[in-house]
C-alpha cells in the first residue's frame, strides 16, 4: 500500500476513474497544463488530453452548468471550483438545476457529476479563500455532500462520487492536502457514500467531525487520554448528506456525551443537524447537553495570523470543549 497525502489521493482517484471509464472528464479553471492551483489534476492533461482535462474560462456558473449538460449527455464530469469561496456564481445552477433535475423530471434525467471544492481555512487565505460553506449544500435536497479527512477516504469517496448516479459535492479541506501521508489501499477500493468512520473508539464522550477536524479531534483525543484519562470516541462523518445517523446514535448510546466540531460558523451550521438528530432520537442516552464547537459568528476568516488563529478550531480548543463536556 502506498503512502499518499490527500492531494495525491484525490489525483490518483481521478486518474484511475478516467482510466477506467472514458466518459469521465475533468473541467475547471487552470486544471489543464498547470494541473490546478493546488496541483490536484497534475499530470492528467498530459495523459488524457485537452478535451478530457478541460481548462475553462473564469466562469463558475458555466463550469457547473456545462457539467450538468455533459452529464445529461451521458458523460461523467468532475467539475473543479478553484476555491469553495468562488462557487456562488454557480449557486443557481447547483441549487435550481443540478439538485432538482432528477426530481423535476420524474426520474428521467439524472446528473452523475461531481463538483470538487477546496474549502476551509488555516492557510492564510482570508475571507475569500478559506470558507467552509458546506451547510448551503447539505440543506439542499438532491445533492450528496462528502468531506473526507484521510487520503484513503479521499480516494475511495472520490471513486464513489464519480460512479454515483447523482450529483456529489466533494469538499476537500485545503489545509489537509499536504498535511500528512497515510496508507491508501491499492487498486479499485471504493468508500461508500453515507458511512461514517469511527476513527478512534472511546467511552467517555463522542466527537463528531469531518475534514480537517478529524485530524484535530484525534490529536485532542490523545491529549485528553494522556492528561485527563478521558477516552474520546472520534467519529468522522465523512458523508454529510446522506448522513450515517445509525453510527451517530450508536456512538451516543455508548458514550452519552456528544461534541460536534466544525470550522464553519455555528448558527445554522451542519452541527445543528447533528445536534438535533441526537436530541430527537438519542435523548434518553444523554448525560449532558449536546455541545457544538464551531467557527465564530463573523462573515469570514480574517487575514492576519493573530486573527486567523483566533478564528480557527484547534486541537487545544477541542480539548477545552471536551473537558467541559466531560465535567458536566
Amino acid at each position: 500500500m502506498p503512502e499518499l497525502n490527500i492531494l495525491e489521493a484525490v489525483r490518483l482517484g481521478m486518474d484511475e476513474e478516467m482510466e477506467r471509464d472514458e466518459r469521465v472528464m475533468v473541467l475547471g479553471e487552470d486544471v489543464g497544463k498547470k494541473g490546478g492551483v493546488f496541483g490536484a489534476t497534475e499530470g492528467l492533461f498530459a495523459k488524457y488530453g485537452a478535451k478530457r482535462v478541460l481548462d475553462t474560462p473564469l466562469t463558475e456558473a458555466m463550469i457547473a452548468g456545462a457539467a450538468a449538460g455533459a452529464a445529461i449527455y451521458g458523460l461523467r464530469p468532475i467539475a473543479e471550483m478553484q476555491f469553495a469561496d468562488f462557487v456562488y456564481p454557480a449557486f443557481n445552477q447547483i441549487v435550481s438545476e443540478i439538485s432538482r433535475m432528477r426530481y423535476r423530471s420524474n426520474g428521467t434525467f439524472g446528473l452523475p457529476m461531481v463538483i470538487r471544492m477546496p474549502y476551509g481555512g488555516g492557510v492564510h487565505g482570508a475571507l475569500y479563500h478559506s470558507q467552509s460553506n458546506e451547510a448551503y449544500f447539505t440543506s439542499t435536497v438532491g445533492l450528496k455532500v462528502v468531506a473526507p479527512g484521510t487520503p484513503a477516504d479521499a480516494k475511495g469517496l472520490l471513486k464513489a462520487a464519480v460512479r454515483d448516479p447523482d450529483p456529489v459535492m466533494f469538499f476537500e479541506h485545503k489545509k489537509t492536502y499536504r498535511l500528512f501521508k497515510a496508507e491508501v489501499p491499492d487498486g479499485d477500493t471504493v468508500v461508500p457514500i453515507g458511512k461514517a468512520d469511527v476513527a478512534r473508539p472511546g467511552t467517555h464522550l463522542s466527537i463528531f467531525c469531518y475534514g480537517l477536524m478529524r485530524t484535530f479531534a484525534l490529536e485532542a483525543a490523545e491529549t485528553l487520554a494522556r492528561e485527563d484519562g478521558i477516552e474520546a470516541e472520534v467519529v468522522d462523518l465523512r458523508s454529510l448528506r446522506p448522513l450515517d445517523t445509525e453510527a451517530i446514535l450508536a456512538s451516543v448510546e455508548k458514550t452519552s456525551r456528544a461534541l460536534v466540531v466544525h470550522e464553519a460558523n455555528r448558527f445554522g451550521g451542519f452541527g445543528a443537524e447533528v445536534a438535533a438528530l441526537i436530541a430527537e432520537e438519542g435523548f434518553e442516552h444523554l448525560d449532558a447537553p449536546v455541545t457544538r464547537l464551531a467557527g465564530p459568528e463573523v462573515p469570514g476568516v480574517p487575514f492576519h495570523h493573530n486573527l486567523e488563529d483566533w478564528f480557527m478550531i484547534s486541537p487545544a480548543k477541542i480539548v477545552d470543549a471536551a473537558r467541559a463536556l466531560a465535567a458536566y
Binding site: M25, K51, R52, L54, A61, M62, A64, G65, A66, A67, A68, G69, A70, A71, I72, Y73, G74, L75, N92, Q93, S96, E97, R100, M101, R104, S105, T108, F109
Partner: peptide
C-alpha cells in the same frame, strides 16, 4: 432537456451537451 423557471439556466445545459458531443 427538462426546463426550470429561473431564466437562462437551460442555455448552459445546451452548451454542456455540446461540450459532451465535442469531447
Amino acid at each position: 432537456v427538462s426546463l426550470s423557471s429561473p431564466v437562462g439556466t437551460q442555455v448552459l445545459h445546451a452548451v454542456g451537451i455540446a461540450m459532451g458531443a465535442w469531447v
